[in-house]
Design a protein around this nucleic acid. Structure first.
Lengths: 98, 98
DNA sequence: GCAATAAGTCAGTTTTTTATGACCACCCCA
DNA sequence: TGGGGTGGTCATAAAAAACTGACTTATTGC
């Protein structure tokens, strides 16, 4: 399709960040690792499916890292990556302006 | 219900900025006033309807201002407001990180 | 007067996102 | 041995966003 007019560079990232619950997930992630069931309990109105997809997508683009913790209660943690941390200021700015 | 967990403050603005063509519109708006038909011609793949809705929404939240220019060829211009200008750095950051 | 341009609107369809509820596999504990 | 927690998937349904093409109203240039 000959890349007629390369789409705005901000567009893609913006879209990836703007899915349902994603900003919320981010806000919680800065305070430490996330766990699926805790998110489900703490984010009112969230549903498994959407949350699961959001986490996977954030992981796929490298903002979160999924860590399997092989300990007493075997569980999974989602950690903010350095790249993930680098977008936090954007959310901060959005909060200030919103 | 005792503000169980107020929704993320960044969420709303983020969503408003992330509609189709909106970042593109913004990118063009920083270079001067926009006109509908020019946008339609310059943004490949854009369609009237979506563009029209995007412009209206950006205007409604105060990022753009619609100006009727009563001159030789009577036309309409969309200008970036100060509030609109204040979100430009966010797009800049998104571009850098994206 | 006639066609073109500008700036849209409208109804209807398609595509994308979100939500629902059922289900699954693994551990852990008594 | 069976009940609960954790971390999901799957098929489907509903809701939101985007696209299409036809149509409109008002100017303007010839």
């Amino acid at each position: 399709m000959t890349t007629p007019k390369e789409t705005c560079p901000a567009q893609a990232l913006l879209k990836q960040l703007s899915g349902k619950w994603k900003p919320e997930i981010f806000r919680l992630a800065v305070n430490g690792p996330l766990r699926f069931s805790r998110l489900l309990r703490e984010i009112e109105g969230a549903n498994k499916q959407t949350l699961s997809v959001a986490l996977r997508e954030l992981e796929e683009i490298g903002l979160l890292e999924k860590v399997i913790v092989r300990q007493k209660p075997l569980h999974i943690e989602y950690h903010l990556t350095p790249y993930g941390a680098s977008v936090v200021p954007i959310f901060k700015q959005l909060e200030r302006l919103g």
